[in-house]
Write a protein that binds this DNA or RNA. Structure first.
Lengths: 214, 214
DNA sequence: AAATATAATTAACAGTGTTAATATTTTAAA
DNA sequence: TTTAAAATATTAACACTGTTAATTATATTT
């Protein structure tokens, strides 16, 4: 009885400290960016020794991968709210807007999830399996595109290719925006234009095009 | 006479060492990736002291920015070969293929040029102007899209928005491919498909769509 | 040849991730 | 309850990183 009790306490403590490490890592990440996530800084903030962290995470990229997973949970939560949009093309548009909104409001997380190589390199070398969270998000897109097709949209295109294409386009828009390329290049050629609108205009163009190929 | 001569010699020596530093940095970059570009490693390879590099480049991000510029020269060279393609839509397709080819054959350079934040942060903080090389590449796209429009393509869409959209789409395809997301996510859902084709299929979808909205 | 620029170096600072050896604390058995 | 064992945490150290200030060496000019 008391054995299992103490065991549970230890397990709970382990879990708590593991969570605490992730929490502090997230705090550093959101406050001062990716580069200032440091094992030593995390340890200092918690009040433990840097090496203790290695008892809870394999290495630094393990911590970063945990952060990566956090981000996908956030995105999944946002996507889940769109399930009640019945008309598939409307849902597709809403997903696009939601994705862009996520990218703009969680820039660092988006970078970690879709731009940086480190987290996916970690999962490749350690788990040797696939990328569950990302796969789930892509599945949501696939289902919606399939629904669109069943209602007469995108007749000429392959489901697989079409989904990939849509994701690539919206990711491209977000990626260029976040890295500053969008405003930078465009302002050089269109100094009079309002930069904030570039992203919206690119998205509207996608919607326009998708509608026109119905 | 002899004064200017010795002055020239010194200037030449300065230029040569500056070039040598960049050359070695490029070598390290291409052989072992971005992360193994280190001031100390560059210095060791040349046989000079690490601090000497600071007499030729402001700091590490200055070296990396120089590498960044190298990449844009390479891309410009590749684009220049397409000027003789007369039919604008054919030229647009060729540019897209050329861009993708560049990304696949110079993965590290592409990452440095369009994905990483460091070089553009450097130019922002130091030159306070714009991003010439990138601007030139975008201008080439703009001109081609304008030519397409003048021949009846993309009637409904704005030149500006359309160009941005095309760039974003192709960049998105390249970006997802290079970071491994493309194959990773898709293979989870389509294990039987050939991964190499994902990129081509996404590009073909773009071309199909662009043609259909003529 | 001496004075003066220029160029390059050494030494040091303040960081980084990570490992091996050691100490401490907690749990289980005698 | 005391002792052996297991789990947990720490210190010290290694091998790196970019970068700066002070110093030395080299080349140019007076």
């Amino acid at each position: 009885m008391s054995e299992t009790n103490t065991k549970n306490k230890r397990l709970k403590h382990k879990e708590n400290l593991r969570k605490k490490i992730l929490e502090v890592a997230k705090e550093l990440f959101l406050k001062h960016g990716y580069d200032s996530i440091s094992i030593r800084k995390i340890a200092d903030k918690i009040g433990i020794s840097p090496t203790t962290i290695y008892l809870y995470y394999k290495d630094k990229s393990d911590v970063i991968y945990a952060l990566h997973q956090e981000g996908f949970k956030m995105l999944a939560t946002q996507f889940a709210m769109l399930r009640n949009v019945d008309e598939p093309f409307e849902r597709l548009k809403a997903m696009g807007r939601s994705y862009i909104e996520f990218a703009l409001e969680n820039r660092d997380f988006y970078e970690l999830m879709f731009i940086m190589r480190e987290p996916i390199a970690f999962v490749n070398k350690n788990y040797a399996c696939e990328w569950e969270e990302g796969g789930a998000a892509f599945e949501a897109l696939l289902v919606t595109v399939a629904d669109c097709k069943s209602r007469g949209y995108f007749k000429q295109a392959d489901l697989h290719a079409m989904s990939l294409y849509i994701w690539a386009t919206i990711h491209g828009i977000c990626s260029l925006k976040l890295q500053g390329h969008l405003d930078h290049v465009v302002s050089a050629h269109f100094p009079e234009k309002e930069h904030q609108l570039n992203l919206e205009k690119a998205f509207d163009t996608l919607v326009l095009i998708l509608r026109s190929i119905q």
